[in-house]
Design a protein around this nucleic acid. Structure first.
Length: 172
DNA sequence: TTAGTGATATCC
DNA sequence: GATATCACTAAA
């Protein structure tokens, strides 16, 4: 019996949550009852205003407001006008941290993940817990992890650019 | 490598 | 109001 992750899972430091999300299953139930499942294969941690790669480092805005809010909330970000990137808020209230869910096991990029799961901006701000449309399951599987520098953040400066806060499932 | 895409933030 | 930016993908 798979277990849905509760809010206590997310209400921790994003550096703890991000690696533990690897191997978990993201489930989206459509209106007709179909369940789309995707095992999470890659995440990245974004932690606080001091993390220059985090949106919140540029100041608190209506868009980043969610990052400061309650853990377990979905933060959908439309980047470049066409790609939905999916994040989960972690940490206590007032701490702008989150985990970017970059990829499922089959697909290769963050926008493909959301596309495959039919996720769009309507989910922005919704909680992952106590939600019958979308949730994350734990089936006990925990793959080997490897870490790497985060991608696409050249603007963040040498330190933040090279720090290994990206977590990937080791594939064999 | 480059184009394309559109919301957000920032500058008048 | 206008333009510069951007955590990407696809096509070449």
């Amino acid at each position: 019996m798979n277990k849905r992750l509760g809010i206590e899972f997310f209400r921790r430091d994003c550096l703890e949550v991000a690696p533990e999300l690897i191997g978990k299953i993201l489930v989206h139930r459509l209106a007709d009852g179909t369940e789309l499942r995707e095992r999470i294969a890659e995440t990245e941690a974004y932690r606080g205003e001091e993390d220059l790669a985090c949106h919140a480092s540029k100041g608190r805005t209506p868009r980043t407001e969610l990052l400061y809010g309650e853990a377990g909330v979905i933060y959908i970000y439309l980047c470049y006008g066409m790609h939905w990137l999916m994040n989960v808020i972690t940490g206590e209230n007032g701490q702008p941290q989150g985990v970017l869910i970059r990829a499922g096991e089959v697909h290769s990029g963050p926008a493909k993940l959301t596309k495959a799961l039919r996720i769009n901006g309507d989910f922005n701000g919704q909680p992952f817990c106590g939600n019958d449309e979308i949730w994350i399951e734990d089936d006990g599987f925990s793959p080997k992890l490897k870490t790497a520098p985060r991608v696409g953040i050249d603007y963040a400066g040498e330190y933040w650019k090279n720090i290994e806060w990206r977590f990937i499932a080791e594939e064999e």
